[in-house]
């Protein structure tokens, strides 16, 4: 992989030079670029962006539709659905997609959106938690996050969240795996460069859950983390692990002010 990056640097030296002026054309990307922060949208091929742009072409909208059904579905011993407490998601969840993970006092840890959904299920609905990366949890998370589409990412990193943010940042910058690479090796040091046939993005999280062409379906940010970790031949952490939730917090801050795009379409 390092050799790959080196080769990319050699093979694309010319492109990197040429890319300079293009990077300064900020207005070109509209809301998908805020200052130097660029959504993965701005790194995607035109055909992939077209897929995201039309809700009747974007296949991830099938997950939003089925998530909307789950929102209304009564489950568990308490005889409740999400809607029983939260009513119209368009209103009650309008900000939910912008602010997770949040500090959760009872556990003294950060909680992400998937965990919040499962907390509601087990505590309030008296239903079983949805399985991580199972279709139900993906559908409901995609539906909820979609309610905030277009709103700026706005996570809280001060107060009780501060130490978790610091841990997330440390994770992001720590080299790991047989290839000895940190998240930042690709997404900060080499964003905009080619890694073999792939154009490296800044690794922004504002489009998750995302429909990946590679996956041929919708997946969570933690699935992406696991893929990245495996790619550098590091042991991936579990879905919903504290390490990944803290990393998610750090990434949410990196993507601050970018619009929530869920569900995005990416390579």
């Amino acid at each position: 992989m390092r050799r790959g990056i080196l080769a990319a640097a050699l093979g694309l030296g010319l492109s990197a030079v040429l890319a300079g002026p293009a990077m300064t054309e900020q207005s070109q990307w509209g809301p998908y670029q805020v200052g130097d922060v660029r959504s993965g949208y701005t790194y995607a091929a035109g055909e992939t962006r077209d897929m995201q742009d039309d809700d009747f072409v974007n296949p991830a909208m099938l997950w939003v539709d089925s998530g909307a059904e789950l929102w209304e579905t009564v489950d568990g011993a308490a005889g409740k659905s999400c809607a029983s407490c939260h009513g119209d998601a368009a209103e009650s969840m309008a900000e939910a997609g912008t602010k997770f993970p949040v500090y959760f006092e009872p556990s003294g840890k950060m909680m992400n959106l998937e965990q919040r959904i499962n907390f509601c299920r087990t505590e309030n609905m008296k239903a079983d938690a949805f399985k991580w990366e199972g279709q139900e949890l993906l559908r409901l998370t995609t539906f909820v996050r979609n309610q905030s589409r277009g709103k700026p990412m706005n996570v809280k990193i001060d107060g009780p969240a501060a130490p978790f943010y610091a841990k997330g940042k440390e994770f992001y910058e720590t080299r790991r795996g047989q290839l000895d690479m940190a998240c930042s090796s690709c997404h900060v040091d080499n964003a905009g460069n080619m890694l073999r046939a792939n154009l490296l993005s800044q690794g922004m999280s504002n489009g998750f859950p995302t429909y990946r062409l590679k996956w041929q379906g919708v997946g969570s940010l933690h699935r992406r983390f696991r893929g990245c970790n495996k790619q550098v031949r590091a042991q991936p952490y579990d879905y919903g692990s504290e390490e990944y939730v803290n990393l998610e917090l750090y990434l949410a801050d990196r993507a601050r002010s970018l619009p929530v795009e869920a569900p995005a379409v990416r390579n």
């Binding site: 009747f56 072409v57 296949p59 909208m61 099938l62």
Partner: peptide, 25 residues
């Protein structure tokens, strides 16, 4: 269980050529 997604205009003039888009899980 997953419902198809269909887009066509709600209204059209007689003789108008309309586009229909469909998606299914």
């Amino acid at each position: 269980k997953s419902k198809p997604r269909i887009k066509l205009p709600a209204k059209a003039a007689k003789g108008e050529i309309i586009q229909i888009k469909t998606l299914i899980s």
